[in-house]
Design a protein around this nucleic acid. Structure first.
Lengths: 167, 167
DNA sequence: TTAAATTTTCAATAATTATTGAAAATTTGG
DNA sequence: CCAAATTTTCAATAATTATTGAAAATTTAA
């Protein structure tokens, strides 16, 4: 496999994987492109590389900035904006996990809490709803907490030691 | 909040959450309905509760069975098929994590391995691609391994002890 | 076997989501 | 301040994905 083929394969794989971590294809592909770029890129360059429109590029770069994954870079003597992404995979994982927790997991935990907290009127249906959503609530809280904690360990010693522990 | 409202809220929340774990809305809603049901349900009952068509119900129940989350139940003297879902949240999480690992994470790990394994021709671009995809490859392997191991602990003692450890 | 009950399939259609492109808004060098 | 360069917005459109519904296939009771 040559560089160009490998590059395209990586960008397209990362793009279709976007849905897995809750972002759209273009957004994931822009991030992938920046991730393997040796220098900051302009909107023009992103458009050309990924063959997407200016509007699409603008909106998705903005969203990546909102996520905290992409940054504007100022280049002396240049009027255009240049973009870079976080290059450290640990830090990238940390940012993504935190955002997904905040945007998606936390709100669901809140709803599970509300639903599982309804008054027990003695009916079997009500009791089953309470029991099952309570169990989900507990699971979601534990998983969210674990995710946040694992990902917070900057040097990643924890993950390594856990893996050692259970191997 | 009354039973009916809580039930609808749970089903619709779980439905829109479906995308988070990689399944469509109807599929997630059917699973949610079975999850809080006190008895096995027929296709007719699922159609009526969720207001979806027979074809939609049939296809999505089939997919849930493929995932290993839903089972056919035989009811004596009944010709129709009855369906139930796994009721234990730990086991449910285990099944879902395993399936996602197998269907999505493992194939990506393979591609990252391939891409990061291209020949180093000395160009800066090639070296950056290799370096970055190698880092992602390592991260993905570790995360996948950790996920599978955490979720495999049936009694969940591991998660509890890890949480204790890092609190 | 047969025929009624039930389930599955899949082409047509609807709903949703992503993308374009050009006009409007903003920024910046002079 | 002006005007060129650049970015953003958003209505229109395209692409994708989900859903329907009825015909075909399958199952089962008698």
């Amino acid at each position: 496999m040559e560089y160009q083929e490998a590059k395209e394969k990586f960008i397209s794989t990362w793009g279709s994987l976007g849905t897995l971590w809750g972002i759209n294809k273009a957004m994931a592909q822009i991030q992938a492109l920046l991730f393997i770029s040796t220098k900051p890129l302009t909107t023009e360059e992103i458009m050309a590389e990924l063959k997407i429109s200016r509007g699409n590029t603008s909106m998705n770069v903005r969203q990546l900035i909102d996520w905290g994954i992409v940054n504007k870079e100022l280049v002396a003597g240049e009027r255009k904006e240049f973009f870079t992404t976080e290059k450290d995979v640990q830090e990238l994982a940390r940012i993504i996990a935190k955002e997904r927790s905040r945007r998606e997991i936390k709100p669901v935990i809140k709803i599970l809490q509300d639903v599982s907290g309804i008054k027990d009127d003695g009916r079997a249906e009500t009791q089953e709803l309470i029991k099952q959503t309570k169990a989900l609530h507990e699971l979601a809280k534990t998983a969210d907490s674990l995710l946040n904690k694992v990902v917070d360990q900057k040097q990643n010693w924890l993950t390594k030691s856990i893996l050692k522990m259970i191997n």
